[in-house]
Write a protein that binds this DNA or RNA. Structure first.
Lengths: 212, 212
DNA sequence: TGTGTCACCGACCGTTCGTTCAGTAGACCG
DNA sequence: CGGTCTACTGAACGAACGGTCGGTGACACA
């Protein structure tokens, strides 16, 4: 009874132009599998042997594609943060009322989170043990500040309730968003938009049924 | 530059009756420190050497108090789940309208989460790698079902909005609650009740400022 | 058939891991 | 002082860890 699913030999070049040389994995396919296994067992709880088994190769083969375990982590975390920051640069996140920009970032984050689930999940579990993790935490902190600023602006505009601390509110909001990685299963139907709709509804109008 | 704070030699018997024998740690003080370090570096990322350093003893000393690393994890997880389930057994969680019971459990969870922060944090990070972790995940699942049932009842009562899936809603709600472990710092003032108030307000009425 | 290119194997290295064990040290009581 | 309780040390163990290296296998194109 294996702890991880069968070897992922769908591998690299199932799509795109075929390259010369022996077929098999490439750096990207290794990263994709690694991120999945890191999520199943935790980064520290995953050995290179575990990764090799999931890839269907010996562990020395992995070093042909990446320099080591930490590079896999770094690339995964960078990929996740890049995607999140891209959302904050979109037009909907930079123009208009603060509360609408906030909604845009929330919906965009849900989308990124679902599209890049393994990488974002990894990002949200980082503890800061190594330099690579510390750097990711630093980027996350910048993202969080950006959200808190949006909430503050929303309060000033009179669109966001003023009886809760914006710092606390923004953290609770994205606690809600980020929790998606804990239970979302890509296979189980449930489109990204449905989740985003439910999220925005609860976040902005609350759980309580409207009075009439 | 140490990665963890100075040795915790406030130790066991700072409070309560003094026992006979050489002074130092006991099983409980070891557990308390262990849970803290597990949170800082992750369970798998923490070596017995790390624990020993944080305790101010050699690692062999730890085995005088507990049978091993997994026992520390098991006791920590059990402690957290016991506290959470105690909330669900309180009167406020078993009588009255569903939406009020839900609020009671949410407030109680926030309290437990703040009081037993290291243990609950550990619980929320469990991946299911070992039997001990699998058992904890099983208990968590039972807790989650209980919440989902409350939301469903609330919808039937007409108190909870019916345009979001109760399963999704309950997960988002407790995603919000659980996110507290990611940013709450006990020292930084911010009482447990203030957080619970902000949480309940956002959860039930939403972020948007009321119309008048 | 030969050549270039890329993917991989298997044996091995030094280190760190969780754990064990025989012995030691300090505080209290008589 | 001796006796008893509890807490701890230091050296060692086998296993597992991340990583290295020289050699081999499989395809594309000529």
């Amino acid at each position: 009874m294996a702890r991880t699913s069968a070897p992922d030999d769908s591998a690299a070049r199932s799509t795109g132009r075929r390259r010369s040389g022996r077929p098999g994995h490439d750096a990207d396919s290794v990263l994709r599998v690694a991120a999945r296994v890191f999520n199943e067992r935790g980064y520290d709880g995953t050995s290179m042997e575990d990764l090799a088994r999931a890839l269907g190769v010996t562990k020395s083969a992995i070093y042909h594609h990446v320099s080591g375990k930490t590079e896999l982590l770094r690339r995964s975390l960078d990929l996740a943060m890049d995607a999140l920051f891209e959302v904050t640069g979109e037009e909907g996140a930079t123009t208009g009322r603060a509360i609408d920009r906030l909604e845009h970032v929330m919906r965009g984050s849900v989308r990124v989170l679902v599209e890049e689930l393994p990488h974002v999940t990894l990002l949200l579990r980082v503890r800061g043990n190594t330099d690579v993790e510390k750097r990711a935490l630093e980027r996350r902190r910048r993202f969080d500040h950006l959200i808190a600023d949006l909430v503050r602006e929303g309060v000033v505009d009179g669109d966001v309730r003023s009886d809760v601390d914006p710092a606390v509110a923004s953290r609770l909001l994205f606690g809600m968003v980020n929790s998606i990685v804990e239970w979302y299963k890509p296979d189980r139907g449930l489109a990204c938009e449905e989740i985003a709709d439910a999220l925005v509804r609860i976040a902005f109008q609350g759980m309580r049924a409207s009075k009439e």
